[in-house]
């Protein structure tokens, strides 16, 4: 019997490709955690604790900030962890070639990268929950909202990862530094992470700008499940926008991946 008569090992191959990425992450765990934790920790500490203690921001600001920072970390974690390795893989190291030569359809190799970026984004977001509660002592999280929070985080990380694949496959390694600054900085500050979006009605033009940033819907979704008393965009709308944005970005990213993978 020929190898071609056997069923293609698609599921096993996908699991192996994902397994490879998880094994490598496990080995680099301290570096990974440092990469995703330091910046949000300082944001939380300075904006949520120091400025609050000095009286520059109100006492309730921590409740606004924590869901936003978790959302930011999940989204940007997914984006960075997909975009950066991809630019390297397609230029210098070519390490991904072995996976492109496996009997896994190229789209699924791309999908694995998005799934893996999502996992890293969720970890980056999830570790912020206990740390945030520790730093912002007046912030609280009802145990019942933990699972919904993880679900919103996962969706946010997925959108971030899919956007990361679009960026990572469209940009040359020489351009990645510039693109990261040019893309990430506006994304981070127009994503309703440091303020609730409905509160922007006094600044309508900025409200519109924020409305086109998918990160806004992650932040607002996190607020909807963590601190529902703060005015927020309805959860169903957040989930809908994120699902559509994720699907569109994933499709565009996988096409970009296909163009880079096969000449």
């Amino acid at each position: 019997m020929s190898v071609l008569d056997e069923r293609p090992p698609t599921a096993r191959a996908f699991a192996a490709v994902l397994g490879r990425d998880l094994v490598v992450t496990g080995r680099e765990l301290p570096a990974f955690l440092a990469q995703v934790l330091l910046q949000p920790l300082f944001i939380l500490f300075v904006f949520g604790k120091v400025l609050a203690d000095l009286g520059y921001v109100g006492g309730g600001f921590g409740d606004v900030l924590l869901p936003g920072v978790i959302a930011l970390n999940a989204f940007v974690g997914g984006l960075q962890n997909t975009a950066l390795p991809l630019t390297l893989d397609f230029s210098f190291s070519r390490e991904i070639e072995d996976r492109l030569l496996s009997p896994l359809p190229t789209r699924l190799v791309a999908m694995e990268k998005i799934v893996f970026g999502t996992i890293r984004g969720v970890v980056a977001g999830a570790v912020m929950i206990p740390l945030g509660l520790l730093i912002l002592q007046d912030a609280t999280l009802a145990p019942a909202s933990l699972l919904p929070a993880l679900a919103v985080m996962a969706l946010g990380a997925f959108v971030g990862s899919a956007v990361g694949m679009v960026v990572g496959t469209a940009v040359s390694p020489r351009g990645i530094n510039v693109v990261f600054t040019v893309v990430l900085t506006p994304l981070m500050f127009t994503g309703a992470t440091q303020f609730p979006w409905p509160g922007l009605d006094r600044l309508p033009w900025f409200q519109i700008v924020c409305a086109v940033n998918p990160l806004t819907y992650v932040s607002e979704g996190m607020r909807a499940v963590m601190v529902p008393r703060i005015p927020h965009i309805p959860l169903w709308l957040c989930l809908l926008v994120l699902a559509v944005a994720g699907a569109v970005a994933a499709e565009a990213g996988m096409r970009g991946f296909g163009r880079r993978a096969v000449d």
Binding site: P8, P9, R12, A13, A16, V17, G19, R20, D98, R99, S102, P103, L104
Partner: peptide, 8 residues
């Protein structure tokens, strides 16, 4: 090992 795993 991973190469073989990719091939099932």
């Amino acid at each position: 090992l991973f190469h073989a795993a990719y091939h099932g």
